[in-house]
C-alpha cells in the first residue's frame, strides 16, 4: 500500500470520524427530546383531572376552572407540550403548585448548589478512583489489593445513607469536626461553603469512588493481560514505562467509559445525600415535590437532571472516541 493511498484514506476517514461524532450528538438530542415527551405524557396520563386531583373533590367549580386556566389544561396536549418546552428552553418553567412561586426562582440557586456539590465530589472521586484502580491492578493479589477490594465491595453494598450516618456519627457527633446539617446561603465564602459540604461530599465520594475504582481496576487488568504488554516487558521496558507509555493510552478509552457509567451513581447519590444533610439542592426539591405531588416542579427538575446526565454521558463518549487510538488514526 503506497503512502499516498494511506493519506487519502486518512482524510476520507476524518469525515467518518466527524460523522460518528455528529451522530452521537444527534442521538443525545433525540433522546432528550423523547424523554421530554415522556415526562410530559407521564403527567398527562395521571388518572382523572389533574386540577381536581390536586385541589380535592370538594373544591368549588370556579376554583377548579381558574386552576385549569393557570395550568393551561384547557388547551389540547400537543399545543401545551410545545409551549411548555418552548418556555422551558427560554427559562420559564411555570409556577409551583404548592407555593405558586416561579419554578425558575425555586430551581435556580438549588441547581447551582447541586452542581457545586457534585462537581467537588467528582473532582475528588475521579482522580482518586483512577489512581487506586491503577495501583490495585498493578499490585493485584497483594494484601493491599485485597484490603482495597474488600473495602470497596462493602462500600458498594452499603446504602448511601448508611455511609452518611456513619460519617455523621463519627465526625460530627463524636468528634464534632464538621456540621451534620449542610445549610447554605448566598453570602458564604468559598471556604465556608467547602467546609459546610465536607460530609456530604465525603459520602458522595465514597459511593462513586468504590464503583469507579473496581471498574477501573478491571479495565486496566484487561489491558495488562494483552500480548503487547508482554512484548513491552520482553523488550526490557521498565515497569513504570510499561504502565505509563504502553498501558495507559490504551486504557484511557475504557476508563473514560467507566467514569461515564458511574455518573449515574453520582446523580442518584446526590439526591440521597441532599436529603440526609438537608442540603438545599435540586434533589431535595425533587423529593419534596414528589411527596407533595407538585408536578410542574417534578417535571422541570426531572428534565434538568436528565439533561445534565445525558450531557455528561455525551461528553464522556466523545472523549472516549477521541482517546481511542484506532478511531483517532483510522485505516
Amino acid at each position: 500500500m503506497p503512502t499516498g493511498l494511506l493519506n487519502g484514506g486518512g482524510s476520507l476517514n476524518m469525515k467518518d470520524m466527524t460523522a460518528t461524532i455528529l451522530k452521537r450528538i444527534g442521538h443525545s438530542v433525540i433522546t432528550l427530546f423523547v424523554i421530554s415527551i415522556l415526562i410530559f405524557i407521564g403527567v398527562e396520563a395521571l388518572p382523572g383531572d389533574l386540577a381536581e386531583s390536586i385541589l380535592g373533590q370538594n373544591a368549588l367549580p370556579e376554583t377548579v376552572e381558574a386552576f385549569r386556566k393557570e395550568l393551561k389544561l384547557d388547551l389540547p396536549p400537543h399545543v401545551r407540550y410545545i409551549s411548555w418546552l418552548g418556555d422551558f428552553v427560554q427559562g420559564d418553567m411555570g409556577r409551583s403548585l404548592s407555593n405558586h412561586r416561579p419554578i425558575t426562582d425555586l430551581i435556580g440557586w438549588r441547581l447551582s448548589n447541586t452542581l457545586f456539590l457534585a462537581a467537588v465530589a467528582a473532582m475528588v472521586a475521579v482522580p482518586l478512583a483512577i489512581i487506586l484502580g491503577i495501583l490495585t491492578a498493578l499490585y493485584r493479589n497483594t494484601l493491599f489489593d485485597r484490603i482495597v477490594s474488600m473495602v470497596s465491595l462493602s462500600a458498594i453494598s452499603f446504602p448511601e445513607f448508611f455511609i452518611a450516618y456513619i460519617l455523621i456519627a463519627l465526625l460530627s457527633v463524636k468528634l464534632s469536626l464538621f456540621p451534620s446539617i449542610a445549610t447554605m446561603d448566598g453570602q458564604m465564602s468559598l471556604m465556608d461553603k467547602l467546609y459546610t459540604i465536607v460530609l456530604p461530599c465525603l459520602t458522595l465520594t465514597m459511593v462513586v469512588l468504590a464503583h469507579m475504582m473496581r471498574q477501573t481496576r478491571a479495565a486496566i487488568i484487561n489491558v495488562l493481560a494483552t500480548p503487547y504488554i508482554e512484548m513491552a516487558l520482553l523488550k526490557g521496558v521498565s515497569r513504570l514505562r510499561v504502565v505509563v507509555v504502553h498501558a495507559f493510552p490504551n486504557a484511557l478509552s475504557p476508563v473514560i467509559n467507566v467514569v461515564a457509567l458511574n455518573m449515574a451513581y453520582l446523580v442518584a447519590g446526590v439526591v440521597i445525600v441532599e436529603v440526609v444533610f438537608v442540603y438545599p439542592g435540586l434533589g431535595q426539591l425533587l423529593v419534596d415535590s414528589v411527596a407533595k405531588r407538585d408536578l410542574p416542579v417534578v417535571q422541570a427538575s426531572g428534565l434538568i437532571f436528565a439533561s445534565v446526565y445525558i450531557g455528561l454521558n455525551l461528553i464522556a463518549d466523545l472523549l472516549s472516541i477521541a482517546s481511542n487510538p484506532r478511531l483517532r488514526n483510522p485505516r
Binding site: 500480548p227 503487547y228 512484548m231 507509555v245 504502553h246 490504551n250 487510538p325
Partner: peptide
C-alpha cells in the same frame, strides 16, 4: 497484530 501496541 496483537503484540504491537495499537496506540503507537
Amino acid at each position: 497484530a496483537a503484540s504491537f501496541n495499537p496506540a503507537h
